[in-house]
Design a binder for these strands. Structure first.
Length: 923
RNA sequence: GCUCGAAUGGUGGAAUGGUAGACACGAGGGACUUAAAAUCCCUUGGCCAUUAGGCUGUGCGGGUUCGAGUCCCGCUUCGAGCACCA
């Protein structure tokens, strides 16, 4: 009987399905373990071999944990809202839901063939009303809460209203868009509309007039993480800054907690670092500079309070509200002209063009420490969105200020001893202060670090400013002018944004005739008929962004069919959070920030019991494509093999990797591939056409896409699973190269051969030999530690070595072979299950127990030790394993080799490392 | 510019500070076969040597150590993240 992967895999996949082998329920008697994959966006192209990499890794871990006795939650679903389906809908008129459903079916059939242990009864689709009801619910809760800085958590907005009624805004401890000041009487006399506008300033989900990333080509705004280098991440279209009235989430309120939470997480350092960069905490001081001859104070933020004595001018962002307030009449014209010239430029142009530009406002500020008068300028190198949109410029110690000062001939005062500022600024934060003495404060002679602390203390005491922490993290813009997303459960009652009631949810996505904006420029939902509440109030036309549905999906898997809560208290208390999360690094500043924010918000409300959603996170590397090339001699239809291509003038052409094997081109398939190659001629080497290769992104246009279906069909799912893991370390990016797959396939065939000889099962009840047990227990130890460390590639090597040892030992012992299969089951579940049953077991191998490692069996009776002289290995000795070091030393020196190497020399030192090496130092 | 990570044969990659290159692919040789495929066996970092064996070798330069791919200092190159963030 041959190893027939097609028959075996189909049969066991059916068996697992029919017997609900992977269905899991809350079970208080067993410890839980939650293993999650980042759910995919079902694209039209289907899965390529790169996609399942992480899924295979998590599946191995899930199966392993189950064998170790854990109750494992391992679900899968789809991130179903997304731009591609909508773009496709715009082009074809096909409803995005139809396309999405089709793509999901395709994904599912591809996933099923790989033999995953998902509990499909918990499947989630973000576009499913049953699911997005809870996305809408969370949004409503965010609307109904504000962030209280005293309690350091979200609290009901109703509490804040009560406070306003009694105290007004005085002493309010809440995160807000801008500081407001009103009395209780003023609050109480406000109209409903005014109250609504005021509360927007505090709500966690709020409508705000904010600068947004507007992408004209996509017709929508984008979040910061959806934009990179001035173009959209999806599609690469230009993005401009635009002031729009949009729904936002006050993610910034959670900046510090998002930062602190990272400490306890078992994530890679690089991922944590990426998030830290994105949050961008900087400690500094906010300081007021008085504008001469006015009653205006300019607020600035600086991390270098020590350099105040070197401030020779100040700069405002062009968008700063202070610009109009302080510009003198003489300078009005020049300032207006400058600001107009800036407005014409997009953010991208401003970024690329690093020319120094700016204009003097005519106003002067007073340096609060030195008392000197300094000019105030406007320049686009100062960003409106960070800090206060105004800076104090210290040209001697900041390269941007330096460039500006040199360009406009402003003075430069060095503040650090020995700093040469004749050519460039001295930006380092070290050295002794000079030139820093004012009427009330003297910093001269202090180290920079101490000078900063001293100045901060001084300005707080004098009331000139205060210590302040700034974050780069901005609030998330939550509106999208698109069709294919969750509708907002919001209507406008006499212009006042109002939330629907929970019992009215889900608010279903309406049908529209076209997926384009309306003629008047409103989002596609503007086309929906009767998009009003029963009372006739208009409903919000924007939809939610992609990250809305993916922010809490891991909670829904715990209790996917609950229609009265996102997750029941019981399910939340049992499953708690994700123990192992596997996915790509591309979500570092998007999904993984939003999810953590969302979870912390729900935590504040007492809806979830863990403050962090993902305890451990592994980033699987990307699988790149390995493209093949043929070389056409220019102006001919003749192709020359790679080794000879240098002798001709050739054009490399991508060739489909599926008609190439081990870089050898299949000539007939090539001729049949495309009509223009039907008459192709070849110049061969050794009778073969050798293709060139390159590592590139896996994509259709490079003809390097490998479909897992083809691999499963030809070699089987077990081979695919093993090979994907064997390719290299999980976290490393690597090219897919089908060439090596024969190796693991051969291994499975050999494994089959160990069980079946001449169609006869060879398993016996023979007692295992000492050798058998040694091989087995070495394997148990290796595989157990490897799985815990996600070094799956070396485990597979260990399986191969163990197999060849067992074959050599002609092992037929049931006991040994069964345990071998259990170890293998997480990696290659189909063949393990098949052989497990062939041996007479009637229950699934998924419920077997992970073998216990026993040190006794692997103990060596003797140990080989390398003997070296001055660190250079010379010969090997074999000694009993338990021989004391002093004895080993004698044996080592007594060896005939030792005589040769120590001849005429004195033995100065003998180093014995038990079981490893003997080193003899002579001289 | 700042931060993080990486660099080992023809290739993918192994090595708790202890004989570098496990395992696999590819390549070369051989067995079986009319032949091919499949399967099995041997060789395979480089250089020298018929063999025995020797020398050399983990991006570069130093250092610590009896002993360094591994630890420390200084570079080079590549990858990733952030970036007029004050």
């Amino acid at each position: 009987m041959e190893y027939n992967h097609r028959e075996i895999e189909a049969r066991w996949q059916q068996y697992w399905k029919d017997n609900n082998v992977y269905k899991c329920e809350i079970d208080m008697s067993r410890p839980k373990f939650y293993v999650l994959d980042m759910f995919p966006y079902p694209s039209g192209a289907g899965l390529h071999v790169g996609h399942p990499l992480g899924y295979i890794a998590s599946d191995i871990y899930s199966r392993y944990k189950r064998l170790k006795g854990f109750n494992v939650l391992h679900p899968m679903g789809y991130d179903a809202y997304g731009l591609p389906a909508e773009q496709y809908a715009i082009q074809t008129g096909q409803h995005p839901e139809v396309t999405t459903r089709k793509n999901i079916e395709r994904y599912r059939s591809q996933l099923d063939k790989i033999g995953f242990s998902y509990d499909w009864s918990r499947e989630i689709k973000t576009c499913d009303p049953e699911f997005y009801k809870w996305t809408q619910w969370a949004f409503m809760e965010m609307f109904n809460h504000y962030y209280d800085t005293a309690a350091d958590k979200a609290l009901p907005i109703a509490d804040l209203v009560k406070y306003f009624e009694k105290e007004g805004s005085k002493g309010v401890k809440a995160v807000c868009s801008k500081e407001l000041s009103f009395t209780a009487e003023e609050w109480n006399s406000m109209t409903d509309k005014e109250k609504s506008d005021t509360l927007m300033n505090y709500r966690i989900a709020y409508l705000g007039n904010t600068m947004v990333n507007w992408c004209p080509a996509l017709g929508t705004v984008l979040a910061n993480d959806e934009v990179s280098e001035g173009v959209s991440v999806r599609g690469g279209y230009p993005v401009e800054q635009k002031l729009m009235y949009q729904w936002c989430l006050r993610v910034s309120a959670y900046a510090q907690r998002l930062l602190d939470g990272l400490e306890k997480l078992d994530w890679t350092d690089s991922l944590k670092e990426t998030q830290r960069n994105w949050i961008g905490r900087s400690e500094g001081a906010e300081m007021r500079f008085h504008i001469d001859n006015t009653d205006i104070d300019l607020e600035i933020f600086t991390t270098r309070a020590d350099t105040v004595f070197g401030v020779t001018f100040m700069v405002l962002a062009p968008e700063s509200k202070y610009v109009d307030m302080i510009t003198t009449p003489e300078q009005k014209e020049a300032v207006k002209e400058y600001i107009d010239s800036i407005k014409h430029k997009t953010e991208r142009e401003r970024m690329i063009d690093k020319k120094v530009t700016g204009v003097f406002t005519g106003a002067y500020a007073i340096n609060p420490l030195s008392g000197k008068k300094i000019p105030v300028w406007v320049s686009d190198y100062v960003l409106a969105g960070y800090g206060t949109g105004a800076i104090m410029a210290v040209p001697a110690h900041d390269s941007r200020d330096y460039a500006f000062a040199r360009h406009f001939n402003l003075p430069v005062i060095p503040l650090i001893e020995g700093a040469d500022v004749s050519e460039q600024s001295f930006d380092a934060k070290e050295g002794k202060m000079i030139n820093s003495e004012g009427p009330e404060l003297n910093l001269n002679g202090l180290e920079v670090k101490d000078a900063i602390a001293r100045t901060k203390k001084f300005i707080e005491e004098k009331g000139i400013g205060k210590v302040k922490v700034n974050y780069r993290l901005r609030d998330a813009i939550f509106s999208r002018q698109r069709y294919w997303g969750e509708p907002f459960p919001v209507y406008y009652k006499d212009g006042i944004p109002t939330m629907m009631k929970l019992e009215d949810l889900p608010l279903l996505l309406p049908e529209v005739d076209k997926y384009l904006p309306t003629e008047s420029g409103e989002p596609p939902l503007g086309r929906a008929e009767n998009w009003k509440t029963p009372e006739g109030y208009p409903i919000e036309l924007n939809t939610m962004p992609g990250f809305a549905g993916s922010s809490a999906y891991y909670l829904r898997y715990m209790d996917p069919h609950n229609d009265s809560a996102l997750v029941s208290e019981e399910a939340d208390k049992y499953w708690r959070n994700v123990d192992l999360y596997i996915g790509g690094t591309e979500h570092a500043t998007g999904h993984l920030i939003y999810s953590r924010f969302w979870n912390k918000f729900l935590y504040d409300l007492g809806k979830v019991c863990e403050a962090e959603p993902f305890s451990k996170l592994i980033n699987q590397g990307m699988i790149q494509g390995r493209s093949n090339f043929v070389y056409r001699i220019k102006d001919t239809n003749t192709f020359v093999s790679a080794g000879l291509k240098d002798q001709y003038d050739v054009t490399p052409i991508h060739v489909d990797v599926n008609i190439v094997s081990n870089d050898i081109l299949d000539l007939d398939k090539f001729r049949a591939w495309r009509p223009e190659f039907a008459t192709a001629e070849f110049i061969l080497e050794d009778g073969k056409y050798v293709c060139g290769y390159a590592v590139e992104k896996m994509s259709k246009s490079m003809f390097n896409v490998v479909n897992p279906d083809d691999i499963v069909e030809r070699y089987g799912a077990d081979t695919l699973r093993l090979y994907e893991m064997f390719l290299g370390p999980l976290e490393q990016s690597k090219p897919w190269d089908t060439n090596g797959i024969d190796g693991v396939n051969r291994y499975l065939k050999k494994l089959w051969g160990l069980f079946y000889k001449n169609d006869q099962l060879t398993v016996t009840d023979a007692e295992p030999t000492a050798e058998n047990l040694k091989t087995l227990h070495k394997l148990i130890k290796k595989v157990s530690t490897d799985i815990e460390n996600f070094s799956y590639n070396t485990s597979i090597s260990a399986f191969m070595i163990a197999l060849s040892e067992l074959s050599q030992q002609k092992c037929t012992s049931r006991q040994v072979l069964e345990q071998y299969l259990i170890l293998l089951a997480p990696f290659a579940p189909h063949i393990a299950e098949e052989l497990w049953h062939a041996m007479g077991n009637t229950t699934t191998i998924c419920d077997a127990a992970w073998p216990e490692f026993n040190e006794e069996y692997v103990k060596e009776s003797s140990v080989k030790m390398a003997v070296s002289f001055n660190g250079k290995a010379r010969y090997t000795i074999e000694v009993p394993a338990d021989m004391p070091a002093a004895e080993v030393e004698k044996v080592a020196l007594a060896h005939e080799g030792a005589a040769k190497w120590t001849e005429g020399k004195t033995v100065r030192k003998v180093i014995v490392v038990p079981g490893k090496i003997v080193n003899i130092v002579v001289g």
